[in-house]
């Protein structure tokens, strides 16, 4: 039998690209944000089809950058939040597609694996986004400068401790 097909798994790849489109939409508030996001999406697309993790990483970073930049101009805080989740989901699912393709190949039955993984990523993102949204609703009315400073300081420390 000829060698198995080790190209990226189709289900995860499709979901990744879908998430990428959603992220792009979330970034569509100002020109720069959209341009950055679109460029990122293109790189992600390339990486997901050409089996290149580097392209996926770079693309996701640009996509995320676009979402962050666009966040400032949004009236509703929920959209950029879910845009951020969509970015991470796009990044992870593209990487997952490549991984599964390399280890198992297209000929193997991987539907369940991919669906469960996509679900897990979405669930974590949803939880985080909800937490963020609640924080926004509760706290972000009139923020004193010092509060912001402490928040920032705390976040630095926490995230430094949280290096994955």
């Amino acid at each position: 039998m000829s060698d198995p097909d080790h190209r990226p798994a189709t289900l995860s790849r499709t979901l990744a690209l879908l998430a990428g489109v959603l992220a792009m939409l979330a970034a569509a508030t100002n020109t720069f944000a959209v341009a950055l996001a679109a460029g990122g999406f293109a790189a992600l697309l390339l990486g997901a089809f050409k089996n290149t993790r580097r392209a996926v990483d770079t693309g996701a970073m640009a996509l995320g950058g676009g979402v962050v930049v666009g966040a400032g101009s949004h009236a509703v805080a929920a959209i950029p939040l879910f845009g951020a989740v969509a970015t991470v989901a796009a990044w992870d699912l593209a990487g997952h597609a490549i991984d599964v393709g390399e280890q198992l190949g297209r000929g193997a039955d991987t539907r369940r694996l991919e669906l469960v993984h996509a679900g897990a990523v979405a669930a974590v993102g949803l939880a985080a986004a909800t937490a963020g949204f609640l924080l926004y609703r509760i706290a972000f009315r009139d923020v004193a400068l010092s509060t912001l400073v402490f928040l920032l300081f705390a976040s630095i420390l926490l995230m430094a401790a949280l290096r994955e």
């Binding site: 979402v67 966040a71 400032g72 950029p80 939040l81 993102g125 985080a128 920032l152």
Partner: peptide
């Protein structure tokens, strides 16, 4: 970005990153 440009909404997105990292 949020700190530099005083944009709380942008700052919020950090929560997503922290959530995934955790």
């Amino acid at each position: 970005f949020g700190a530099g440009f005083r944009l709380p909404a942008a700052f919020l997105l950090a929560v997503v990153g922290v959530g995934y990292a955790t």
